[in-house]
Design a protein around this nucleic acid. Structure first.
Length: 893
RNA sequence: GCGCGCUUAGCUCAGUGGUAGAGCACAUCGUUCACACCGAUGGGGUCGCAGGUUCGAACCCUGCAGCGCGCACCA
C-alpha cells in the first residue's frame, strides 16, 4: 500500500470519495430493482439558506439511515430538494434591493421583482446543496426537486382546486394575524408568543347620562380607543349591573358608546370593565359579532393610525400613538394610573415585530382527513420518536383552527383563482369582496387559467409556503394523476427525520395531505431531532453569533469528524449543548482508526503457515466485534443514534486499540513466528474490515478510504455498496470454547491493569526491565505469559510455584495468581505493610457489604436465585482474597 | 392556567430495579519500535430535595424546588 502520513488529513480524502460515489452513481435509486425499497424525503431546506448545525445533525442522521439501509440490502431513495420559503426569501431579496438600489418591491412591480427573486434563487440556491454534499449526504441528486418547479406548482394548484371543490377552502373576511412589516397575513403557527414588560393603563369614561360619574377601564393598548365601539362588563358582576344598557363617552374621537354585558369579561382582571375594539382584537371581534357592533379600523396595513378625524393622531406609528393617547387622557383628567404589567405579545416569526390582529379578506382551509391523521399517530401506524411528541401532536390535532393559507406576498404559488374583471370592479367600488358576492360564472378556480383570460383577473395573493411543503413526500415522486414506478416503489416513505419545532407547520399537515391525496400515510416513522444549543443553553442564532459555521468545522475536523461528534452527543430526549470539543473528539477518533490501520500496514502476511494459532485475545476481539454487530442491529431498530456512535467508539478505542493491539504488539516483532503473525494480521483484517463497514454510515469517507487502502474492498468497488454479512466472525465456533478463551483474555487484561497499577504505585510505571514473579499461577498462564508481559511493560512474567519472596516485596492478588514485583530498592517492609493494609481495608468493606446482604433473610428468600448466587460468588471471592492478603501481611510481621 | 421535559463528577452528558460510568478538564509518569489528534496511573459524585413502593431505587410512585419548552382570546 501507499505510505500513510502520520495524521489523517480528511479534507482531500472526503472530496475524492464524494466525487467517486457520484461518478459511480452510488446514490441513485432504481425503482425497477428487486430489492425491497427504503426511502426518506429530505426536509427541504430554504433555497437561500445556509447550512447550520441543525441541518448537519438532521442530515447526518438521514444519511446514516440511508447508508445503513443500503448495507442491509435495500434499494434506497433519499430524495433531496429545496423549499422556496415564501416570506423568508422575499424578505431577503427585498432587503438586498433596498440596500443596494434603495428600491422597494412595489417600485419594481410584481413581474420585475419576481425576476429578481429567481435570479437570487439561481445564484444562491445551490449553496446549501453544495454544503450537504460536502457533508457526505448520499441523496439521489438526479431527483432533486424545488417546491416551485413547474410540475410541483401544478400539484399545489391541483390540491387547492380539489379542496376548494370539496368546500374545505373558502375565502372570507376574518380576524387574522397581520404583520405590519411584511404586510401579509400569517398563520397562527407563525406567531411567536413572547413574554413582555408592558404597561396597563387605567382610565375612565364618563357616563353620558350622568356627567361626573365614570366607568373605569383598563387596557394595554390605549391607542385603540379610537376604534372603541362599546365597553363590556360581566353580567354577573354586581358592581356594573347598573351601567348595562347605558352609554359612556369615548373621549376621542368623541362619541357615545354603549355598555354591554358579556360573559367573556373577567371580573377579576383590572377594573373588570373591558373596552371593545372589534377591529383590533380577536376577542373583541367575537364580542362585536355577537352584539352586532360596528367595526372601526383605525390602523393602516403598516401599523399607522388611520383616523383623519384626529389630525394629531393620523399617520402616527402605533407605538407613538399609544404614548400620545396616554398623554391626551391625562390632559383630560381621564387617566387614573399606569401599572407595570407582564403579558404575552404575539410577534411575527420572520419580521420580529408585534403582529396586529386585523380583519382582512383571506383564504382559509378547513383541514382534510383530520380523523385519519389523528388516529394514525394515536394507534402507532405512524410512530413518533421520542414518543412523547405524539401527545403534542394529538393535542394540536384536537384543537385545529382553520388555516389561513393566503399571503400578501409575491414570491410563492399564486392562488389559482380568477375573477371576472367587470364583477371585480363593481365589487371594489362597493368595498365588498366576500365570496357570496361572486356567482359561479364570476369566478374561475382551476389549475389552468380561463380560456378568455383577458376578461379575468387572477387573485393576487400567494399561498403559505407550507401549503406546498405539505405535499412534499408524494409530489416529489410523481406528477398529478401519475402513478410512477418511483411512487410504487418508494411511497409511503419509511423514515422522516426533522425537528420538533415544525411538528405543526409540516409533519401534521403532511400526514393529512398524505391521507387526502394518496389515501396512505406519507411515512411510517418520524424521528425528531434535538435542538442544538450553545454552551450557555441558548438557541443558536445568527444575531447572537453563537452558531458555528459547519463548513469551518469541516475544514478543521473533517466532515466525518463533524458528523460523528454531533451524532454521538445527540440524545434522544432533551436538547443538547454544543461544544466544539465534541467535534474534536470525532476527528481524533478518525485519526485513531487511521493510525491503527497504519500500524497494520507495517507488516505483511506471509502465506508460509500451516495452521492459524488463534489465542485468547484473538478470539476475544472477534467475539466482541460480533457482539457489537448484534448490539448495533438492536440499537438501530430503536433509532439510538448516540449510543450506536458511543458503542463504535468504545469498541475501536478501548477494546481494539487499548487491549487487542497492545496485546499483539509482540507479533509484529522480528522474533514472532510466521504463524503468530499470521493469526494476528488475519484477525486484524477480519475485525477491522467489518468494523469499517459498521462505522461507514457515521463516517463514510474515512471508512471508504481505509477499506480501499487496506485492500478490504476491490479496486473499482465501493464499501458503501457492500452488504453487511449476516454471519458473525465466530459463527462457526463452539460457543463454549469462545467463552473459555474470552474468560482468559479478560483475566489477562484485568491482571495487566492491576500490575500496571502496582508499578505506578512504586514509581516504576515506565520501566521496561522489571520481572513479575507469579506464585500459584493458573494453569493457562504459562502459554499466555508473553501477552501479559507486553501489556504490563515487563521484561518477563516468571512462574515460580515455590517462590520465596523477600519480606516487603510488593505483591498483587490477581486472577492469574499472586504476582510479586521484586526489584532492588523497592523492598520496603513498612511501605508494603501500609499498602497491604489499605487494600485489606477496601476488601473488608466490600466483604462486609456482601455479607450483610446475604445475612438478610428477605434478600436470600426474595431476590431472584441468580442474583443471590452471584452475590455468594462475590462474597467467596472477597473471602479468598482477604485471606491471601492477610497472609501476606502476616508474613511481613 | 394546562401540558411536556430536564436536574448524575469542575464542564458536557450516558446510564429504565442488582458493586455509580464516559469524554473533556485536573495531578503524576511516559515519546527508537501505529497514534501527543497518543499511552499508563490516579484524585474527584449524600445521582436536585422530601416522602413512599421494594429484599434492594440514580432508575418505579407521590409531593416540592429550580431551569427550559410547548399550548392557551385575561384586556
Amino acid at each position: 500500500m501507499s505510505e500513510l502520513s502520520k495524521a489523517y488529513e480528511p479534507v482531500d480524502v472526503e472530496a475524492k470519495w464524494y466525487a467517486a460515489w457520484i461518478e459511480g452513481k452510488c446514490f441513485e435509486a432504481d425503482p425497477s430493482s428487486d430489492a425491497p425499497g427504503y426511502s426518506i424525503v429530505i426536509p427541504p431546506p430554504n433555497v437561500t439558506g445556509i447550512l447550520h448545525l441543525g441541518h448537519v445533525l438532521n442530515n447526518s442522521l438521514q444519511d446514516i439511515l440511508a447508508r445503513r439501509a443500503r448495507q442491509k440490502g435495500k434499494e434506497v431513495l433519499w430524495l433531496p430538494g429545496t423549499d422556496h420559503a415564501g416570506i423568508a426569501t422575499q424578505t431577503k431579496v427585498e432587503r438586498e434591493l433596498k440596500k443596494n438600489e434603495g428600491l422597494g418591491r412595489r417600485d419594481l412591480g410584481r413581474e420585475k421583482f419576481l425576476e429578481r427573486v429567481w435570479d437570487f434563487k439561481n445564484e444562491h440556491g445551490d449553496i446549501i446543496i453544495k454544503q450537504l454534499k460536502r457533508l457526505g449526504c448520499s441523496c439521489d441528486w438526479s431527483r432533486e426537486r424545488f417546491t416551485m418547479d413547474e410540475d410541483y406548482t401544478k400539484w399545489v394548484s391541483h390540491v387547492f382546486v380539489e379542496l376548494f371543490k370539496e368546500g374545505l377552502i373558502y375565502r372570507g373576511k376574518r380576524m387574522v394575524n397581520w404583520c405590519p412589516v411584511s404586510l401579509t397575513a400569517l398563520s397562527d403557527e407563525e406567531v411567536i408568543m413572547t413574554p413582555s414588560k408592558s404597561k396597563l393603563f387605567f382610565m375612565k369614561y364618563e357616563l353620558a347620562d350622568a356627567p361626573g360619574e365614570f366607568l373605569e377601564i383598563s387596557t394595554t393598548r390605549p391607542e385603540t380607543l379610537l376604534g372603541d365601539v362599546a365597553v363590556a362588563v360581566n353580567p354577573k358582576d354586581p358592581r356594573f349591573t347598573k351601567y348595562i344598557g347605558r352609554k359612556v363617552r369615548r373621549p376621542f374621537p368623541a362619541a357615545e358608546i354603549p355598555v354591554i354585558a358579556d360573559d367573556h369579561v373577567d371580573i377579576e382582571f383590572g377594573t373588570g370593565a373591558l373596552k371593545i375594539t372589534p377591529a383590533h382584537d380577536k376577542a373583541d371581534f367575537e364580542i362585536g359579532l355577537k352584539h352586532g357592533l360596528e367595526i372601526i379600523d383605525v390602523l393602516t396595513p403598516d401599523g399607522m393610525i388611520n383616523c383623519p378625524e384626529l389630525p394629531e393622531f393620523n399617520g402616527l406609528d402605533r407605538f407613538v400613538a399609544r404614548r400620545l393617547a396616554a398623554t391626551k387622557l391625562e390632559e383630560m383628567g381621564l387617566l387614573i394610573k399606569i401599572e407595570e404589567y407582564d403579558n404575552n405579545i404575539g410577534y411575527s416569526e420572520r419580521a420580529g415585530v408585534p403582529i396586529e390582529p386585523r380583519i382582512s379578506m383571506q383564504w382559509f382551509l378547513k383541514y382534510p382527513c383530520v380523523k385519519e391523521a389523528t388516529d394514525a399517530v394515536a394507534n402507532g401506524d405512524i410512530k413518533f420518536r421520542p414518543e412523547r411528541w405524539a401527545k403534542t401532536y394529538g393535542h394540536w390535532m384536537a384543537n385545529l383552527q382553520d388555516w389561513c393559507i393566503s399571503r400578501q406576498l409575491w414570491w410563492g404559488h399564486q392562488i389559482p383563482v380568477w375573477y371576472r374583471k367587470d364583477k371585480l370592479d363593481a365589487l371594489k367600488s362597493a368595498e365588498s369582496l366576500d365570496m357570496q358576492d361572486f356567482s359561479a360564472g364570476d369566478i374561475h378556480v382551476g389549475v389552468e387559467p380561463p380560456a378568455d383570460a383577458e376578461n379575468w383577473q387572477r387573485d393576487e395573493d400567494v399561498m403559505d409556503t407550507w401549503f406546498s411543503s405539505w405535499l412534499w413526500p408524494f409530489a416529489t415522486m410523481a406528477n398529478v394523476g401519475e402513478d410512477t414506478p418511483t411512487l410504487k416503489k418508494f411511497y409511503p416513505t419509511d423514515d422522516l427525520v426533522t425537528g420538533p419545532d415544525i411538528i405543526f407547520f409540516w409533519v401534521a399537515r403532511m400526514i393529512m395531505a398524505g391521507f387526502r391525496f394518496t389515501g396512505e400515510l406519507p411515512f411510517k416513522n418520524v424521528f425528531f431531532t434535538t435542538i442544538i444549543r450553545d454552551l450557555k443553553g441558548r438557541k443558536m442564532s445568527k444575531s447572537l453569533g453563537n452558531s458555528p459555521d459547519p463548513i469551518d468545522l469541516m475544514e478543521k475536523y473533517g466532515a466525518d469528524g463533524l458528523r460523528f461528534g454531533l451524532t454521538r452527543i445527540a440524545p434522544i430526549g432533551s436538547d443538547v449543548r454544543f461544544d466544539e470539543v465534541q467535534i474534536e473528539e470525532g476527528r481524533n477518533f478518525a485519526n485513531k482508526i487511521y493510525n491503527a490501520c497504519r500500524f497494520r500496514q507495517m507488516a505483511e502476511i506471509s502465506d508460509d503457515w500451516e495452521e492459524l494459532d488463534l489465542r485468547p485475545h484473538h478470539v476475544d476481539i472477534m467475539s466482541k466485534l460480533d457482539e457489537l454487530s448484534a448490539d448495533l442491529d438492536r440499537l438501530y431498530a430503536d433509532y439510538r443514534f448516540g449510543e450506536i456512535a458511543q458503542r463504535l467508539y468504545e469498541f475501536l478505542w478501548s477494546e481494539f486499540c487499548d487491549k487487542f493491539l497492545e496485546a499483539v504488539k509482540g507479533d509484529m516483532r522480528e522474533t514472532a513466528s510466521v504463524e503468530e503473525r499470521a493469526a494476528t494480521l488475519i484477525t486484524f483484517d477480519g475485525v477491522m474490515s467489518r468494523f469499517l463497514q459498521l462505522l461507514h454510515p457515521y463516517m463514510p469517507h474515512i471508512t471508504e478510504e481505509l477499506s480501499e487502502v487496506m485492500g478490504y474492498v476491490e479496486k473499482g468497488e465501493f464499501l458503501m455498496q457492500h452488504l453487511l454479512p449476516e454471519e458473525g466472525l465466530l459463527a462457526d465456533a463452539d460457543p463454549e470454547d469462545v467463552a473459555g478463551e474470552k474468560a482468559i483474555a479478560t483475566a489477562i487484561y484485568e491482571t495487566a491493569g492491576r500490575l500496571r497499577n502496582l508499578k505506578a504505585e512504586y514509581h516504576v510505571g515506565s520501566r521496561r526491565d522489571v520481572t513479575f514473579i507469579v506464585k500459584g499461577a493458573v494453569e493457562w498462564l504459562e502459554e499466555n505469559a508473553d501477552t501479559l508481559a507486553i501489556l504490563t511493560g515487563a521484561k518477563e512474567i516468571r512462574i515460580e510455584p515455590d517462590y520465596a519472596a523477600p519480606k516487603g516485596t510488593p505483591v498483587s492478588i490477581t486472577d492469574v495468581g499472586e504476582v510479586y514485583l521484586p526489584l532492588e530498592g523497592l523492598i520496603d517492609v513498612e511501605a508494603e505493610k501500609i499498602r497491604l493494609t489499605r487494600e485489606i481495608t477496601k476488601v473488608e468493606q466490600e466483604l462486609a457489604k456482601s455479607e450483610s446482604k446475604l445475612a438478610s433473610p428477605s434478600f436470600v428468600d426474595r431476590a431472584p436465585a441468580e442474583v443471590v448466587a452471584q452475590e455468594r460468588e462475590r462474597l467467596s471471592d472477597w473471602k479468598t482474597k482477604l485471606g491471601q492478603l492477610r497472609e501476606m501481611l502476616a508474613a511481613l510481621a
